[in-house]
Design a protein around this nucleic acid. Structure first.
Lengths: 131, 131
DNA sequence: TGTTAAATTAATAATCGTTCCGATTATTAA
DNA sequence: TTAATAATCGGAACGATTATTAATTTAACA
């Protein structure tokens, strides 16, 4: 996904964006694929993936749970927050007191029973900052 | 992974936990596998996976990026937080003003260049609450 | 200590979500 | 209309993870 690529419009991509704008269910790839197969019977799964990544690239859509594609494990027991380098994927612990009250504040705005929260901070680590 | 299973101890699992306690790099499965292969030349990748899931089950280790195994997409442009139901995986938007100052506070505690943060709240949605 | 049943292991096959590929089709600018 | 090339389709390939299997190791107790 280079920076200087020009995108042509495509019916499929337009509809993917439209669907994402219309709904609030935070669709998965399969959800979009199943919906769109009715309009585009020959639609391929790869097309959905490719267009989603173009839309994310264009800043029109956000990918939730962006981060590394594989699991990481943490032997630290106390709750704490994470710093994630967007260049190299490094994960560090952040020495910052956990905001317990955020969970309670969120609770007042929702009918979920909220038990915990997680914060991830994104940016560039010291190494990647200097190329 | 039932709740009433008794686990026997195993050298491999003990070392995995020990490694996770000693390090702060938030190891991936492969990192652990490569380290431990020196001590247990016949170690299999499946053993690392199985023991990690036992340790997570016992609450001794945390899996980072716990949540859905596939990506979700969001067509909403303004930054906002998410509520995630731990029972059914539903993701909802939370109507809560974004705490811009959290990013700045975190910045004072780190040598990362922090550009943004994300908060996810975990709990049970209204439907799952009532079974 | 020695026996034995049960848990753990290694190896490998299967699965899942995602990305990549070659051939074809569609869009755009000239 | 034409030439250039981006986007499509369908399927193969891929990496991370999970499940299956038979063989090995271990805890517990006689």
């Amino acid at each position: 996904m280079g920076t200087d690529v020009t995108y042509r419009k495509s019916k499929q991509r337009e509809r993917i964006l439209q669907l994402l704008r219309e709904t609030d269910v935070h669709p998965s790839v399969d959800w979009l694929y199943e919906k769109l197969k009715k309009e585009f019977p020959k639609l391929s799964l790869g097309t959905v993936y490719r267009n989603l990544s173009i839309l994310v690239d264009q800043g029109l859509v956000k990918k939730i749970h962006f981060g590394s594609t594989y699991d990481r494990f943490d032997g630290r027991r106390a709750p704490h927050y994470h710093l994630i380098c967007e260049a190299c994927g490094k994960i560090e612990d952040l020495e910052l007191a956990v905001y317990e009250e955020i969970t309670r504040t969120a609770q007042t705005q929702s009918d979920f029973t909220i038990t915990r929260h997680m914060i991830e901070f994104y940016g560039l680590c010291a190494d990647c900052k200097h190329q």
